[in-house]
Simulated assay, not measured.
Amino acid sequence: MPLISAAIDIPTSYETLNLTHIKISHHPLGSPSATPVVVITLNRPEKHNAFTPDMADSLTQAYQMFHVDSRVKVVVLTGAGRMFCAGMDLDIGFGDGEGRAVDFRDIGGRVTLAMHRCHKPTIVALQGSAVGVGMTMTLPAAVRICHEKSKYGFVFTRRGLTIESCASYFLPRLIGFSRAMHLISTGGVFPPLSKHFGDLFTGVLPDSAQVLPRALEIAQDMAENTSPLASSMSRALMWEGPTSPEEAHLLESRVFHHMIGQKDYKEGVNSFFEKRKPQFETDPRESSAPNYPWWLEANIALEPSVSKGSKL
């Protein structure tokens, strides 16, 4: 499923890119070309990595590149400095609210959709506190690891705002409606082991310095041992699944039937019997199930406007 219609230029090394307010690294660091695991670092430590339109543009561009780059298998997202992300940079703000609402697209939503639509899974290493869009941008990720003594929250109602970044879709599905209602309605900030988060964080570590290494450990294991195609199709089945067990059975059966005929299945079985690591090489963009996407996609493109030079 293409993210955009235009062709995307893929660099030999992501470490050579100069993207505003983020940094992309290979793992291991300094590898001359893209590695199966790449690391995005929110890189405004002097502002606690506060979110900006430029950061949104950079993150969106990065995920569009990862989506089409077969060398990349797993993405790790973290922050520089003490905080993961302090939310939106309120010195910049969201604009003045002028213009038509139908023409507005929230910048956090652009990032979460790029992450969600990327075939490559994301592991978020929240090495410090995060609030607002610093939390909502992580919701489409496959895994979230955080620091036990940091604080996290969805503070929108305390700023006179509603939730964004597609959080109304992701958050209740991740932790249940009751917990999501409490977090959003109170706008409270809590430690990660608070019952309000449920199991949103699958790893909570006592030392902030442990968070990124643990995320990289999981990412490396996924890159070495899981099929990118099987991972992508499985996540899509959960996020974009049908509404009844019977519909799920039919859909899963069709996708499963497709997977049986793929090289990754044969490689997975052979590597198991031969007691070796698998070498999965199937590109999800080229070998997705024939009925993918199986859901009706909403058109999020802006309506075209008439240019000022038109003679109407």
Rank of each mutant, 00 (worst) to 15 (best):
S305F: 08
P11R: 09
A86Q: 11
S307I: 06
T243W: 11
G132V: 02
T41H: 11
K308M: 12
K47P: 04
Y169C: 05
M1V: 13
V38R: 09
G198A: 06
E240I: 03
F280H: 09
C118P: 03
W239D: 10
V306C: 09
A130P: 01
D221Q: 14
S185D: 12
H249D: 13
R44P: 00
A80P: 04
V111L: 04
K73L: 10
S208G: 01
G203L: 10
I107Y: 10
F280I: 05
H21W: 01
Y63R: 09
L59M: 15
I24P: 04
E217G: 01
H27G: 03
R285N: 13
R235I: 02
G160I: 10
A248D: 08
P206M: 07
K73Q: 12
W239F: 12
Q220C: 05
V72P: 07
L296D: 15
A301Y: 06
L19F: 12
T186Y: 02
F190T: 01
G268L: 06
T52V: 02
S70I: 03
E281G: 01
D207E: 14
R82F: 03
G268C: 04
S25T: 13
A301V: 01
K149E: 14
G87C: 05
H257Y: 06
H67L: 06
T20C: 05
H21I: 00
Y265E: 04
V211E: 01
R144K: 15
E267V: 07
S307A: 11
F272P: 03
V204M: 08
A56H: 00
K263M: 00
H21F: 10
K120S: 10
L193W: 08
R159A: 11
A114V: 08
D199E: 14
V269W: 07
G309I: 05
R276S: 10
D264E: 15
R235Y: 12
I40W: 00
S232Q: 07
R254W: 01
G79A: 06
H258K: 07
A180N: 00
T136I: 03
L212C: 03
F94I: 11
A289C: 15
S31H: 14
E15L: 09
E246F: 08
V38N: 03
N18K: 14
S33V: 12
